[in-house]
Simulated assay, not measured.
Amino acid sequence: MKYLLVQEDENGVEQLWGKCAGVEGLFVDPVPPPREVLTLRGCRPDGPLSYILADPDVSPRGLGDVCVEVWDDEQPVQWWTLVDAVVVAHQPHPTDPSRYDIVVGAGVRNEESFFEVPAAPRFELFAGTTVAAAGWCSAVDGLFKPRADPAPVPMELIGCEPAEPLLAVLRRPRARERDWVNLLMLDRHGAVMASRTVGLAITGARPSVLGGTLVDIALTDGGDDRPSPVARLIWEKWYQGAPAEPNMWAPYDAQGRAAWLDLTTRAWRVPVRRPDQLGGEHHLDGRFVTDVPGLHCAIAEALLGPGRYFGREWNAFIDCLCGGFGVAPPFTLVWHHSEVARRALSDVVEDPQGQLSYFEDIVRLLEHRGVTVLLR
């Protein structure tokens, strides 16, 4: 059995729902929302958006994913994502030449809408891996309209050995509200290497193709919390056991390295926490730091060892520097071959003022948190 189905109660205690030998449909790319054209009206651009408007010759003029916060007079009340947003055109706003009307192409995804749209909303924009402020605008034409839900992508649990809670779900009428469980993948030694949330919207169950008393359970939709097919090779590598050698992430591209970082998030969740190590000297092998995920793989490896977690992006890295993850400042970080990252990340600018590259920003952050950084 390679998978466990568990559900946590309100106290965080896990209850076993079943075991499975395999899962069909675990690795899928999310269905992208259809592309639309929207107009940001009366916009005061900042950060990454202002950089694009300042240099009209830049092409393609992509912003990545843009978070749109809808504010009332006091607080945000709705959150939207403009997926893979691209600036198509812009012009001065008719009533205020200091502001702009910006036309973007993007997929649109509603994240949270707990409240109705305010009578006079304000729209805050954020973009980039550090979720930097990108400005604000007075309206977003085309944002508030009905959209069809994406087609569900089914999943099938193969060779299941249901425990009593799952047996009860299989016996009850289909009209009942579905349950949510955590699908835990085990490595060959029986250790949990990954966890994904799965909704038990069951469309059918039959005797398993593996025989015996096992059953195969078909789900209408495996949910959005599934790894990309790109991650399959990474998961196969980790299935043999947690990494024991440095730089095993290095052969993969940025997407593969991001999948590697995703698996490291289980590494710090151990039952017994040891106090953070303070002081000492850590050595970072910078030969393969050619992208942002590679930078975070290398830093975590330098501080804690292969396969360990110390943040997977800017904000998570800041949290780790605050302590509780095995190492905390002050300490010394000797960054060997630092010029590799300096060159590779010279065009990755996430600083809101646009003055520093991602590499320079990381070094500055470390130094501000009490780390002595020695670039070699």
Rank of each mutant, 00 (worst) to 15 (best):
L53F: 04
E124G: 09
A259R: 04
L5R: 15
G199K: 13
D149T: 11
L157T: 12
A244W: 05
K2H: 08
E36N: 04
E111T: 12
A341V: 06
I102A: 00
A151P: 09
D291T: 10
A106V: 06
R206G: 14
W260R: 09
W79R: 14
A254L: 12
E301F: 01
V198W: 09
V88G: 00
L53E: 00
A119M: 09
V215I: 14
S113W: 01
G286A: 02
A85M: 14
G307N: 02
K237A: 03
A163G: 13
E161W: 05
V37L: 06
L374F: 01
F144Y: 07
D141H: 06
H90W: 00
R308G: 06
A106E: 06
G107N: 07
Y358C: 14
R44L: 15
E14G: 11
E69N: 04
C160F: 05
L5F: 09
R99W: 08
V198Q: 08
G370M: 11
N247Y: 01
F288W: 03
F317D: 10
V6G: 07
V13H: 12
A191L: 05
G135D: 00
A328S: 12
L375S: 07
D187S: 09
P251R: 08
R35M: 08
L63P: 07
Q75S: 14
D55K: 00
D216I: 04
W71F: 15
D29G: 12
D221H: 14
V348L: 03
C20R: 10
F288V: 00
A242Y: 03
A139S: 13
D276Q: 02
S338R: 08
G280R: 13
V28T: 13
R342D: 14
Q353M: 09
G204T: 07
F288E: 01
D29K: 13
A134Q: 02
P45Y: 00
G241Y: 02
W80K: 08
L183N: 09
G223H: 12
V131F: 07
L170W: 10
V327L: 03
L375K: 10
D319G: 02
Q78Y: 01
L183D: 13
N110E: 05
G326F: 04
V230L: 06
H90G: 01
T265V: 12
E10L: 15
L26R: 14
E360F: 08
A298K: 00
A341L: 08
P92G: 12
S138Q: 10
R273N: 05
V363C: 05
G286P: 10
M193G: 10
G62D: 15
P152N: 10
L284Q: 02
P32F: 05
E313Q: 10
A267I: 07
L157R: 07
K145S: 14
V70P: 09
M155E: 12
P32T: 12
E116N: 04
L125G: 06
A344W: 04
A254E: 14
E281N: 10
L166M: 14
L356R: 08
D9K: 07
P30D: 09
A242S: 03
F144L: 12
Y51Q: 15
G64N: 13
R122H: 15
V58P: 01
P251F: 03
L63G: 06
A139I: 11
S195A: 10
